[in-house]
Design a protein around this nucleic acid. Structure first.
Lengths: 214, 214
DNA sequence: TGATAATTGTTTTTTGTTTCACAAATAAAT
DNA sequence: ATTTATTTGTGAAACAAAAAACAATTATCA
């Protein structure tokens, strides 16, 4: 692949562009300007043009961007042709919700294995996905060549479970626990901290007047 | 309050500091250094010292920070003495999970009202919280003086529901829908986009070698 | 008590990101 | 055909955040 390494801030916006372009295509739109995109995705139009320009000249001056070809381009960039299997670790409240959350509907991601310690769940199929004993996690992840895990275990188990994931050779963890887990350099962790999001929102409301946090 | 307006990046870290300090206090620790904090929360020690210094000289050179007084300080900053009631809009998969997700356990936040369109749920109590008809949302939110909403309705309803929330005078929305909703300046939106988080994680794994995204 | 080690608070530097502003290119209109 | 309106792509400026570096201060220990 070896794309020219794009700024991180840009990389985080790519899936948002992709999703909205898909929406536009479905809606039958053939062209779109950076200003229109800006209205929809709420990033400054200049930011959008700059983001796109990292990948070359994708638009046409005086015209805008061709929806279909731009979408095709981003599909390639984001590897939308390849299905990514992810493991879900921990089938509590949030785990269940994420299992039913249809990642697959708008993306190339599918939960293909669930791990838990609850004997009642182990060896059952939940929402179409097999549930395994967490004791078999390392082997299963290796056998199934899964590289991404969604972590929704209790905080107290977070580090130990992460260590197992690392041992299994996982490359990325979407961490829903409030613990900031420790991993080797090569493993990437993306934290989703719901309590934190809410508290930050409250803090901003109480202490700032202007808009937008993201 | 009118604190000297702190950088946004710092503000986002405050709840994380707060939570970890609470953990330290519970564990019986009386002092902590920026280096120790750095190990736990994964921000550079210099960043942590800088963050704290926006609030004055909270530490002691050669010693570190006193856990209890630092915690007290952050509790005030984050208004931890006041309970914040939030409304949950939409009781689907994710809504249920968030209702059972114990925000209250580590924070001053509580879901105090749920709104949905499902007649089977309306006027029942779910996980200790009353469910109202979404038709009564504007009135209820105003009567109960709720200022924050968690939005977990289907994407197709997201903008219309947001418009109602704005009408009801809500000040902040934690938006779990993939739609980037449009709101007036004064209303703050924090987007939590799960598909996006996963796709970003995958993109980073495939295209970058170094660590950490947040 | 004096020397050494630890650790903060802050200045400076570096890095990263966003936005402005406008020339270049194109499309649309007359 | 020519003019006018649009819209990109990008250099430069502005802004924001992170990290390095280190003086100042305090603790600890011999």
């Amino acid at each position: 692949m070896a794309e020219p390494s794009i700024p991180r801030a840009t990389a985080k916006r790519l899936p948002i562009y992709y999703r909205y372009l898909k929406f536009l295509l479905d809606a039958g739109k053939t062209r779109v300007s950076s200003t229109e995109l800006s209205d929809a995705v709420k990033f400054d139009a200049a930011t959008i043009r700059r983001d796109f320009s990292y990948f070359g000249a994708l638009g046409k001056r005086g015209y805008g961007y061709d929806v279909e070809s731009l979408l095709d381009f981003f599909a390639k960039i984001l590897n939308q042709d390849t299905l990514t299997n992810v493991a879900l670790i921990g089938l509590g409240n949030l785990g269940h919700a994420l299992l039913n959350f249809n990642f697959h509907k708008n993306s190339n991601v599918r939960v293909s294995a669930v791990f838990d310690i609850n004997q009642e769940l182990i060896n059952t199929i939940q929402s179409g996905v097999p549930v395994y004993d967490i004791k078999d996690m390392v082997n299963q992840i290796q056998d199934q060549r899964i590289e991404i895990a969604i972590l929704t275990v209790p905080q107290s188990e977070a580090q130990a479970t992460t260590d197992l994931l690392v041992k299994a050779g996982i490359k990325g963890i979407l961490n829903f626990t409030p613990l900031r887990v420790t991993v080797p350099e090569k493993v990437r962790v993306q934290n989703v901290d719901l309590t934190n999001e809410l508290q930050t929102l409250i803090y901003f409301i109480e202490n700032y007047s202007e808009q937008s946090i993201n």
